[in-house]
Design a protein around this nucleic acid. Structure first.
Lengths: 249, 249
DNA sequence: CTTGACCCTGACGCAGCGTCAGGCCACATC
DNA sequence: GATGTGGCCTGACGCTGCGTCAGGGTCAAG
């Protein structure tokens, strides 16, 4: 096979193959009389491994060293690539989950601490963070579902979501200001509306899950601050109302 | 604050701050008499945002535009970031699938043929043209819908989708080879199946939209080449069948 | 007043290619 | 056999996001 065909098959440019040849990463095993590069089947196999390692973010130099190590054979490479890919995918998924959380937080008017964002991208143990995230958010299904839904929301959808959230909060604040106890049926009804808002817009939120969220509203400073900015003690009030609503169900 | 302090605080090099100054990404709001860069609190705030966006993989140019354009808000960026992450995850998953197949093939002593390569890395990979697709169709409802659906597809789903597409193409090719005219009911029926395949798997595709797609199948070389590789004239044939089907509806 | 740790502005280098430029091959068509 | 047309070749320069000197001014302490 000549460069053009190989490039098309591999989804890279001819220039890229030239470059890989020049740096000794993938040197075609033959040339035609006219000097055309001729790629043999073995070259294509190496090409596939180059592509995979490159996809994984290795530098060309690293890839070359990996593939030129005579102690490691093709099958070893493939197995290693499988592991690396699995790690990488898991890591990206945890990043995606974080971004989703940022989107949710944003839609409620809360800015995520950039510090927190950076934690994920730093050189920390990815599994550790994934566990922590799962601990905080309880259910991975909720993530997946939330992401699936919100990723198709238009700007207008987001405005609606925000308006709904606003409305619920306003009603909570009003109930608090007129002195209704948090377990009053009128207030737990607002909590129920809140739960259904989440279920409709983000993910199926059971009363138990909702109670979990409520805990976070007081435990997480940012959420607490968000509510308390509207009215002093609102975070605790919402928490109590949600708990009362969950108990009633 | 001067460069050294800011660099230490932010965990970047002084050279990096120089660079960001030079390209207008983060220009300190003051200079001392001696020409030393003087960073104000507002500069540090901007720095935080730069760091965050940079971690998220935006180019410096993009970051500058994001921060300097008051019309776009952070929510948009986060959502865009969600999409990019979903794309990358999907891509890595398909690479992982290929590697797994390569392992199986290897352990059975079978060589992997170049066609397999193309499936993942080449022009038949469904995620490969994601960037271009966004550029061309990013604003359309169809794109948004398609992305929302496909982002939740598993590896197995993709295999099904591909098999369905394969089947439709095979039937078209067969109809062509036995000499059926493109507007024969048996052929427009295949076109209809094709349309419903798209509607089920990607986005609601009206007959009109389908006709538009058909135009592209002959106009866009890559699509044309894709069909014509299976059988000479197939792109045009599919185009005609789809048009006839659209007219009949 | 010196010393050493800062700061400044160029300027070059690096990866991993994209993108011409200039020229040779291959195959089809007139 | 001439003439396209398109693919191949080898340079060579450009780009991003800085690292890394080089040559020189500045500041606070001793």
């Amino acid at each position: 096979m000549n460069v053009g065909q190989v490039a098309a098959a591999a989804g890279v440019s001819v220039r890229t193959l030239h470059h890989w040849d020049a740096v000794g990463l993938l040197v075609p095993s033959g040339r035609t009389a006219a000097g055309y590069r001729a790629y043999a089947p073995a070259d294509l196999e190496r090409l596939q491994q180059v592509l995979t390692y490159r996809e994984l973010g290795f530098s060309l130099d690293d890839v070359r060293r990996l593939l030129d190590d005579p102690a490691v054979d093709a099958l070893d490479h493939l197995r290693r690539q499988q592991e690396l890919l699995a790690d990488r995918i898991a890591r990206l998924q945890s990043v995606a989950a974080l971004v989703s959380r940022a989107v949710e937080a944003r839609s409620m008017g809360i800015e995520l601490d950039p510090h927190e964002l950076r934690e994920v991208f730093g050189d920390e143990d990815p599994t550790q963070h994934a566990e922590e995230a799962r601990e905080r958010w309880g259910d991975t299904d909720a993530y997946v579902q939330s992401h699936a839904r919100t990723s198709s929301y238009s700007k207008a959808d987001w405005l609606e979501v925000k308006a709904e959230g606003e409305d619920v909060e306003r009603r909570f604040a009003e109930a608090l200001s007129v002195g209704l106890p948090a377990d009053d049926p009128a207030v737990t009804a607002i909590a129920e509306d809140h739960r259904q808002h989440i279920s409709r817009r983000f993910y199926d939120c059971s009363p138990q899950m909702h109670a979990c969220l409520a805990d976070m509203y007081v435990a997480d400073e940012r959420f607490a601050a968000h509510y308390d900015r509207r009215a002093a003690g609102l975070a605790q009030y919402v928490h109590d109302a949600v708990k009362a609503n969950a108990d009633a169900r």
